[in-house]
């Protein structure tokens, strides 16, 4: 099959960028979308031209590296799948496909289809963890988690951080991502001690990174390759409202005074040492 591609080309974050048209003849329909781009790049290199830059790693939909819009849809037309899991058989011979990078103020384009998603890492760093005192490994069954909660936590934990939720959101919100990370830990006993601080810290970090707000339109849920449900945002909202209105005054002041990434430190502080 033969495909025409309109690909966003941008040399660096300061370059205004533009679309460039490529013809890729002789595509095998069993190729994955990224393999098709590999073929294009080989063709470009052999012609002495600059290959198209795109992110990829595992190429089996679990790492979250790949991702761009194909004809206006994040990760392309296949639902619950990443670009790398999309094969050329999902398109027709002669199709014209427009490839555009994720667009958000918090996701600056680095080159062509590659964007910088480290804003998501900073949201994780601001609270997407539990503080655990390490020592000898704890007995695995020490804290029991009932099956329904374990399932919900696992489901939220399936987020691969690809950024498609941000890309597909008209407000460029990272609500589904942040909600998934908050819900993942909020469903587990280990996540409870820091639950309120986590909700405040991670959402304020997302705000500080320049992500927008959630208007519940549901595009994120539709394009999410990991099948994260919109209800994680509801859970996040509930925790943020509770933490803001119900938290202890001293907790609130401490949280407000700290930079978002440090907000959790309040809970990490060493307990008073016992007299030796």
């Amino acid at each position: 099959m033969r495909i025409t591609l309109d690909i966003w080309r941008q040399k660096n974050p300061r370059d205004p960028g533009r679309f460039e048209r490529f013809e890729v003849p002789n595509i095998n329909e069993h190729m994955s979308f990224l393999e098709m781009l590999d073929v294009l790049n080989q063709q470009l290199v052999s012609e002495g031209k600059e290959p198209v830059a795109f992110d990829s790693d595992c190429r089996e939909g679990i790492c979250g590296m790949c991702g761009f819009l194909i004809n206006g849809e994040a990760h392309g037309p296949l639902r619950n799948a990443t670009v790398c899991q999309t094969h050329m058989r999902h398109f027709k011979d002669g199709d014209v496909l427009r490839l555009e990078p994720w667009r958000a103020a918090a996701f600056p384009v680095l080159r062509d289809l590659i964007v910088d998603r480290s804003a998501l890492d900073r949201i994780i760093a601001s609270g997407g963890y539990t503080s655990t005192r390490t020592g000898s490994a704890a007995e695995a069954n020490q804290i029991l988690v009932s099956k329904p909660y374990a399932d919900k936590a696992m489901e939220a934990a399936a987020c691969i951080g690809c950024g498609a939720c941000v890309a597909s959101c008209p407000n460029a919100a990272a609500a589904l991502f942040t909600g998934a990370k908050i819900a993942h830990l909020a469903h587990l006993p280990q996540g409870q001690p820091e639950r309120m601080a986590r909700a405040l810290s991670m959402t304020s970090q997302a705000h500080a990174e320049g992500f927008g707000h959630c208007t519940t339109i549901g595009e994120c849920e539709a394009v999410c390759p990991a099948g994260i449900k919109l209800e994680v945002i509801s859970m996040m909202n509930k925790d943020v409202i509770k933490a803001t209105l119900g938290g202890r005054a001293s907790e609130m002041q401490t949280l407000a005074a700290l930079p978002p990434s440090a907000a959790m430190r309040f809970f990490e502080s060493e307990p008073p040492k016992k007299e030796q």
């Binding site: 679309f19 819009l69 206006g72 849809e73 555009e100 958000a104 008209p170 927008g212 339109i217 595009e219």
Partner: peptide, 23 residues
Amino acid sequence: ERQRARPVGYQDYRPVVSSTASR
């Protein structure tokens, strides 16, 4: 704020599930 969150818009953006009312 939303305008600031995506200063460069998409050339082509196709809503998948959202209602006109919601947008």
